[in-house]
Simulated assay, not measured.
Amino acid sequence: MARRFPLWVTASVVALTVGLAAPPAEAATREAPPRLPDTYVVSAEPGMVPEGIAVHRDGRMYVTSDATGALFAGDVRTPSMHPFAVGAVDRPSSRGVHTDTAGRVWSVGAGTLTVHSRTGRLLATRTAPDGPLGPADLNDLAITADAVYVTDWANPIVYRAQLRHGRPGPLQPWVDIRSAFPQFPAQYWLLNGIVADAAGDTVLVASNGTEAVWRIDVATRTVEQLDLGDQSFGADGMVLAGRRLYAVLNYGAPNGVYVADLDPDLRSGTVTHKILTDADGQAFDLPTTLARHRCRLYVVNSQGDHRSGQPPYTVSTVSDPACGE
């Protein structure tokens, strides 16, 4: 038998139900997140020539100047960048830049590696010794749990510095790529981008001059060429996310972003995407490297083939074609 309640109880329940089912009008309309810029202005000063880029996990963005050595900082939510607190680094050029898990800013250029706090305080400086072809001209770096690896644009050398409590030891020659490729050209465009897998067991090194990416086994220092079939893959900057390799090409193939899926050992792979224009459908202006943050790729327009270029100097964006796969 159904239990009967007084009319005042029934009325109260109905009123409560209606109140729950009818939230205030302002709660029903949620604001969409703000749209991120498609293009970022690094600098409007003549002669800056951007080169490297890093986007930290919190959205802080850093770009280097190949022509002046300056570092610039910004945020993915705002379209303009500004000089980093350190101003000009004491070197004529800055190329590769990355952040570590603590948010410190690591950058290389000319013959030096520098580490700055997120506020711009200089924490460490390391100088690379000369290579077999002359003074070091450092290009890019990769940071693992126990070491930092650095490429040299003027020598076929990968340098390594041991890390202790986040501080680098001396930069020392670690691998000469000519051990695998004796015909390495005695000219510039030697070593470019460098990435390491999450475990720190494998390092991939790009070389414009040989139109190849070289795989180094960290334990044995064995060097072999990454097999990407018939695809010319003389990458400049690179990003490795799991087994997916993102690379910027500006030599030996149309300028743009190339994405390759690699095998579990990072010995071979297949190019799956080629992106030759930015989010606005414009061609990249001699792209040099890229950063990956969430579902977007950030690509540096260096204008390096017509130095010193024409300001403003910019970073373009494209959607990550592999996002959600």
Results as ranks from 00 to 15, higher is better:
residue 177 I to F: 00
residue 117 S to C: 07
residue 2 A to Y: 10
residue 181 F to T: 14
residue 64 T to R: 07
residue 89 V to N: 07
residue 277 T to K: 14
residue 311 P to D: 05
residue 293 H to C: 08
residue 16 L to S: 08
residue 196 A to W: 02
residue 324 G to V: 00
residue 141 L to M: 04
residue 111 G to D: 15
residue 130 D to T: 13
residue 67 A to L: 10
residue 13 V to H: 08
residue 171 L to G: 07
residue 323 C to K: 01
residue 242 G to T: 11
residue 259 V to I: 13
residue 277 T to D: 12
residue 82 H to A: 15
residue 303 Q to G: 03
residue 22 A to V: 14
residue 267 R to L: 13
residue 212 A to I: 00
residue 14 V to H: 02
residue 53 I to P: 12
residue 172 Q to C: 00
residue 325 E to L: 00
residue 105 V to G: 06
residue 151 T to L: 11
residue 117 S to Q: 02
residue 302 S to H: 01
residue 168 P to Y: 09
residue 126 R to C: 05
residue 179 S to N: 11
residue 241 A to E: 14
residue 173 P to Y: 10
residue 12 S to E: 10
residue 251 Y to W: 13
residue 109 G to H: 11
residue 169 G to I: 12
residue 145 A to K: 12
residue 94 S to P: 04
residue 248 V to T: 10
residue 221 R to V: 02
residue 230 D to I: 01
residue 154 A to H: 10
residue 218 V to P: 02
residue 325 E to K: 00
residue 100 D to Y: 03
residue 237 G to T: 01
residue 107 S to Y: 07
residue 189 W to R: 14
residue 156 P to W: 02
residue 84 F to G: 10
residue 86 V to S: 15
residue 87 G to L: 12
residue 115 V to S: 05
residue 4 R to F: 03
residue 306 H to C: 03
residue 130 D to S: 15
residue 139 N to I: 00
residue 139 N to W: 08
residue 148 V to P: 01
residue 80 S to V: 13
residue 278 D to P: 06
residue 235 A to R: 06
residue 4 R to A: 12
residue 91 R to I: 02
residue 36 L to T: 04
residue 160 R to M: 05
residue 200 G to R: 02
residue 59 G to C: 08
residue 273 H to E: 15
residue 40 Y to N: 04
residue 15 A to V: 14
residue 153 W to A: 12
residue 2 A to S: 15
residue 38 D to F: 01
residue 302 S to V: 01
residue 73 A to Q: 12
residue 3 R to D: 12
residue 193 G to R: 03
residue 173 P to G: 11
residue 216 I to G: 06
residue 111 G to V: 04
residue 43 S to W: 03
residue 270 T to C: 03
residue 9 V to Q: 12
residue 278 D to V: 04
residue 311 P to S: 02
residue 246 Y to I: 04
residue 291 A to W: 07
residue 42 V to C: 08
residue 284 F to Y: 13
residue 129 P to F: 10
residue 266 L to H: 03
residue 296 R to V: 01
residue 1 M to P: 11
residue 140 D to K: 07
residue 294 R to E: 14
residue 312 P to H: 02
residue 302 S to I: 02
residue 241 A to I: 00
residue 273 H to G: 07
residue 45 E to C: 01
residue 226 L to N: 10
residue 190 L to I: 01
residue 61 M to Q: 09
residue 280 D to L: 12
residue 3 R to W: 05
residue 194 I to L: 11
residue 79 P to L: 11
residue 73 A to M: 03
residue 43 S to Q: 04
residue 107 S to N: 06
residue 213 V to G: 00
residue 17 T to Y: 00
residue 93 S to I: 00
residue 66 D to R: 12
residue 53 I to D: 10
residue 128 A to I: 12
residue 37 P to K: 02
residue 236 D to F: 01
residue 131 G to N: 12
residue 196 A to Q: 01
residue 259 V to F: 03
residue 129 P to D: 11
residue 45 E to H: 04
residue 102 A to S: 12
residue 76 V to L: 08
residue 209 G to I: 02
residue 278 D to Q: 05
residue 167 R to H: 14
residue 18 V to T: 05
residue 175 V to P: 11
residue 79 P to G: 07
residue 151 T to S: 15
